[in-house]
Write a protein that binds this DNA or RNA. Structure first.
Lengths: 117, 117
DNA sequence: TCGTCTGTTTAGGTGTCACTTTACACTCGA
DNA sequence: TCGAGTGTAAAGTGACACCTAAACAGACGA
């Protein structure tokens, strides 16, 4: 679960309060019970399913991929992409492990250029 | 579940038989019951957990990432890498979606080069 | 002090995953 | 014909994911 970073629950509670949204209101927007959200925000329950995390990201104005990562997940859309070219994607990711954000951004641009061929 | 490709179970059965390995023997090596493996091979049960798939790959001489993909999975090691840089990795993957194997291989080499800086 | 916010506690509940045990049926060589 | 090997059918299990409803407790304004 990748200790070290702030916990998912604590984070979204902070952001929710900063936006002055009530727990019940938020729960309703996400489509879960207030009870459940309360537990999640205190990290008594693990983060909810992907679609719920996405909704939360939308509400608190966070990048969905970032928040999913905090939830210990990766968007299923991305794993689908990997599964289309497992060997090459695996090679790439292992090679790209530990690269800086700038290096990664550059590679993403290269990929985009390759596609626009 | 991404229809189109050969089913996981059918594939490993074929490879196992080609290597003349008995079902019980294989089950033992993997660490599951023969019954279970039987069902998996006839695609009555979904593919087993990641570590089991890896063992199967080792036994039938297949690339683990490839076999994991066939099993509808992505190595947890790879999702870990993504979770370290969610935004950039997500951007990259979306840009890289649909690229040819050659293009991907080139990008992997670029990544390797960037790391060896 | 009443109603209405806030969040929390208690006590579940259902479904899916990843398997197992037990028992069975077939084939084939000795 | 037996026993040793093949694979299979039926049923069950333990853990965990992903939640819920009902009741409660404290603050705060009218």
């Amino acid at each position: 679960m990748k200790a070290g970073r702030e916990k998912f629950g604590a984070f979204i509670r902070r952001e929710r309060e900063a936006k002055e949204i009530g727990l019940r209101e938020m729960a309703k927007k996400i489509g879960v019970s207030p009870t459940y959200l309360s537990k999640v925000e205190r990290d008594e329950f693990p983060p909810p399913a992907e679609d719920k995390v996405r909704k939360i990201a939308g509400i608190i104005g966070q990048d969905a991929d970032e928040l999913l990562a905090m939830a210990g997940r990766v968007a299923s859309e991305l794993t689908d992409i990997i599964r289309e070219r497992p060997r090459e994607m695996a090679d790439f990711l292992r090679a790209a492990k530990g690269l800086t954000a700038e290096d990664m951004a550059r590679l993403a641009r290269q990929a985009q250029k390759a596609k626009d061929k």
